[in-house]
Simulated scan of single mutants.
Amino acid sequence: MLTSKVAKRYAQGLLDFTTESGQTATVFSEMKDVVKLMSESKDLNKFFLTPYIDAKKKIEVANEIFKGLSVSSQNLIRLVIRQGRESQLKNIAQEYINKVEDINGIKRITLTTATEISDANIEQILRSTHLVNLNSNFDLKKEINPNILGGYILRVGDQQIDASVKTKLNQVKKDFQLN
């Protein structure tokens, strides 16, 4: 997913601030909570995206929703709303998480399968590729996409292994068309 320049700039500013103040771990955890909340709450997203609700009201609601967060996180959220960038709040939080993980050497891995698979199968898939070192730190995100029909798509950073049935069927179809 492409991240906007706005999200990258706000996330970098927050990272610079938290690094200087020693709050990186706290804010990292809180930004994970923000991403989770924004992903799960369609009503909150609609509220923030509603143009006829003024910034003061949005800040009041945000203060109540995010009152358990640190002062730094609350200030960021208020700043984002005051600047009219509340639609980017989830992206800013995710970009901050990505930047902290990059600093800590954590690889982001996405495994897409057609159905839910067991942990043993996941480990077998990860072992079968040269892209993943199981002894290193990584963050595994599992996605279900029935459209791939079977197999898996493994994405590690900017590299991808597509072993899905849909891709193989498409390749067979192309081969038949060429011959």
Rank of each mutant, 00 (worst) to 15 (best):
I53W: 04
I106G: 01
K166F: 06
N45H: 13
A163V: 04
N145P: 08
S136C: 14
K142I: 07
L49G: 14
Q74H: 07
I122T: 07
Q88P: 01
N135L: 10
P51D: 01
R127W: 09
S29D: 06
Y10A: 05
K173F: 08
S29R: 05
K36A: 12
Q94Y: 02
R108D: 01
Q124Y: 14
D43T: 08
I109S: 02
K90M: 02
K107Q: 14
R9A: 09
P146Q: 15
S164K: 07
I65L: 07
A55I: 11
E60D: 15
L134H: 04
P51Q: 12
A114W: 01
E20S: 01
T129W: 10
Y52T: 14
Q159D: 03
N63A: 15
E20M: 05
E95V: 09
I125P: 02
L149Y: 06
N45K: 09
K32Q: 12
S4A: 03
A7C: 15
S39M: 04
I153M: 04
K67M: 11
V132W: 07
A62M: 03
T26Q: 09
L15M: 05
N137E: 11
I117K: 02
T113N: 02
R9Y: 10
K174L: 15
N145H: 07
T26I: 15
S73D: 12
Q159S: 03
S136Y: 08
H130R: 13
N147D: 08
R155H: 06
S29G: 07
N121R: 12
H130Y: 06
D175L: 14
K99E: 11
T26W: 10
L149A: 06
S128N: 15
S72I: 13
L131C: 05
K67C: 13
V100H: 00
E95Q: 10
G68F: 10
K99G: 09
Q23I: 04
K42P: 05
F66P: 03
M38Q: 00
E95D: 14
T18W: 00
N121P: 09
M31R: 00
I144D: 05
N63P: 08
E20D: 08
G22F: 04
K32W: 05
K174M: 13
L154I: 02
L15T: 00
R78D: 14
N137G: 11
L134C: 15
I109E: 01
L111W: 03
N133S: 09
E64T: 11
L15H: 00
A120I: 15
V71M: 13
Q160F: 09
K32E: 07
N179E: 13
I65N: 07
N121Y: 13
Q83Y: 06
E30T: 10
I92A: 00
L111Y: 01
T24R: 01
M31F: 11
K141V: 13
A163E: 11
D16C: 07
K58R: 15
A93K: 00
A7K: 01
S118Q: 03
D139P: 06
T110Q: 11
V132A: 04
A25I: 13
S87W: 14
S128E: 10
N98Q: 11
N91W: 03
Q177A: 13
F138N: 02
K141H: 12
N170W: 12
N147T: 08
I122P: 00
I59C: 10
L69K: 07
S118D: 12
